[in-house]
Amino acid sequence: MKILVPVKRVIDYNVKIRVNSEGSAVETNNVKMSMNPFDEIAVEEAVRLKEAGKAEEIIITSVGDKGSQETIRTAFAMGGDRGIHILNDSNTEPLAVAKILKYIVDKEGIDLVILGKQAIDDDSNQTGQMLAALLNWPQATFASKVEVNSSELKVTREIDGGLETLKLNLPCVITTDLRLNEPRYASLPNIMKAKKKQIIEMPISDTGVDSSPRLETLKVEEPAVRSGGRKVADVDELINVLKEEVGII
C-alpha cells in the first residue's frame, strides 16, 4: 500500500495571530511557521501503518512556497519516505489543492490518502472531501481510530453526539481528528536520516491545475473585544436591566 500524506505549512499554533495593517489577511511576516497539527496526526497514522507492515511507502506532499520544504522535512523526520513539493508562492484554495492531490494520486498510484481534517489557519475543512469526490473514492472524515485489514478499513469517526464506525475499501481518503493519535517527536537521529530523503520540486503549472482564486477575501478582522460584565444585586434588578438597558424583554 502506498500512502499519500499532504502537509500544510501554517502559522505555529503557539503564535498569537494578528491581522495585517491593511485588514486583508493574517500577518505572516516574521511569524514562526510549522506543520498543521492535524497533518502531524496524519503523518503519524501513516507511519504507524508502515511500522505495522501494512504500508510500503509514505509520500509527503505540500503545496506552497519554498518554506514548505521544511515542513516536508519535518514529516520525513517522523517517518515519511519521499516528498513532492508543489511550488506556489500565492495562496492555493482547497479546490485547487484537491485537484493537485488528485494529479499526484493518479501519477503515483496511491492507495490511501490521509489528510488533516482541516488546517488551523483557514479552518476550511474541505480538501479531503473534495479530493474524495474528484477521485470518486470512499471517504472517512474526522477519524479517531483506523484499523486496516488488507484492503478493508474500519474507521471510527467523531460525529455530533457520539461515534460512527464505517467500513470502507481501498483506495480511499481519510481525514484525521485530534484524538486519532499522539504524533511522535522528530528525533535528532531521524532528522539526520531525513536529510538523505528526496524532495521533488514541481511548479504548480506542471500539474495542469488552474489555481487562480475563485474566492475573494473582502475583509479580515480581529475578534471583537469582550466588554466586561457587571454584577446585579437581585433578580428584580436583572429584569429591570434587561428591560430598560438591554431591551431584550
Binding site: 520544504q69 521544511e70 517527536y185 522528530a186 528525533s187 535528532l188 532528522i191
Partner: peptide, 18 residues
C-alpha cells in the same frame, strides 16, 4: 554541525518536548 533546516526542526522538537 547540523544544517540550519534540520536544526530548526530539532529545536521545534525540543520546544514541544519541554
Amino acid at each position: 554541525a547540523l544544517d540550519d533546516n534540520s536544526f530548526s526542526i530539532f529545536l521545534d522538537t525540543i520546544k514541544k518536548f519541554v
